[in-house]
Design a protein around this nucleic acid. Structure first.
Lengths: 160, 160
DNA sequence: CTCCTATATAGTAGCTACTCCTATCTGTCA
DNA sequence: TGACAGATAGGAGTAGCTACTATATAGGAG
């Protein structure tokens, strides 16, 4: 088995949508077509899009959608735990649908964010001092460097 | 010994400055007064300032300094390894002078970034798949949550 | 099914955090 | 100590949000 994360089955996808609808109701949020479309788009991609990227992807099917709605919606998604902001150092915020345990590698050249999964990183132990003093909501291992494609000198254009 | 990082002695500070001057020369960069002042300021603080914060701190002593210079300079510092961009999820870029091994905890409420140090996090093992495919320049453990002060309902104003 | 209302959206304006540009200045080397 | 590549100040420009307001609609009550 590879360390790299793999795609979801259609059944898993549907289960996620169902969960999302329930989660919205639970949080007192309406399940609007825009909200659902944005969540689906995020769920169906592994490129950890920015709000802008999601907007561009959705615009053909949703010509009246506004970028502001995408921005508001992804922030709402993070608030109800249906998405996460990918950790990074600078540039536009990038999101993922917060699926199974996985970690992120970000290429500093092409800005690609690549999922991988390494079991030992799933449950790293916090030092007792920190665990006692703070409420830790999220703990992640984050890697930065040059990806395979950029190492070969290939041009990967991800951002317009 | 505490898990939380502690301050530098004056001798260590001077040694760092000396190293910095050498590092600039090595990289073919001039040691301008502004550059040195910005590096000193970054070295002397543990609040992981943004460019804006550094600018505000330096303005009294350097009234003609421009924000653009601070921005350019901190980026230059990261390029020569004299500073690092603190990993985070959104908001302004925050910097540290990249001292000894340590990790970051960021409070999602007050935006404070707190250093801590946990030996096992210093040299986490990369999965072979990742190490083989990518050039990993930086690997960090990043924690997010609510800090002790915010838990007590105290208002910590860090950003204007 | 229909109405009602709190919530969401589209469009626009405004703001923050850079990033680029150009004229001027200055460390550094010869 | 002069020359100049490289750096800075100041301002203009741009990306990426964030706030505002009028309109529209999801979803519960009747």
């Amino acid at each position: 088995m590879s360390y790299f994360a793999n795609k979801m089955s259609p059944a898993e996808f549907d289960a996620k949508i169902h969960w999302f609808v329930g989660r919205c109701r639970e949080a007192g949020l309406r399940v609007t077509p825009q909200r659902l479309a944005i969540y689906k788009e995020l769920l169906g991609t592994d490129e950890h899009p920015s709000a802008e990227m999601l907007y561009e992807k959705l615009k053909p099917a949703w010509p009246t959608l506004s970028l502001d709605t995408v921005n508001r919606t992804v922030l709402t998604l993070t608030e109800i735990g249906a998405a996460f902001i990918v950790e990074g150092s600078g540039g536009a915020r990038r999101f993922d649908a917060g699926l199974e345990h996985h970690q992120h590698f970000k290429c500093v050249k092409c800005e690609r964010i690549i999922d991988f999964h390494h079991e030992p990183f799933d449950n790293i132990e916090l030092p007792p001092d920190v665990a006692g003093k703070f409420t830790v909501l999220r703990k992640t291992v984050y890697l930065e460097g040059i990806c395979d494609l950029c190492k070969q000198g290939m041009k990967v254009v991800q951002r317009s």
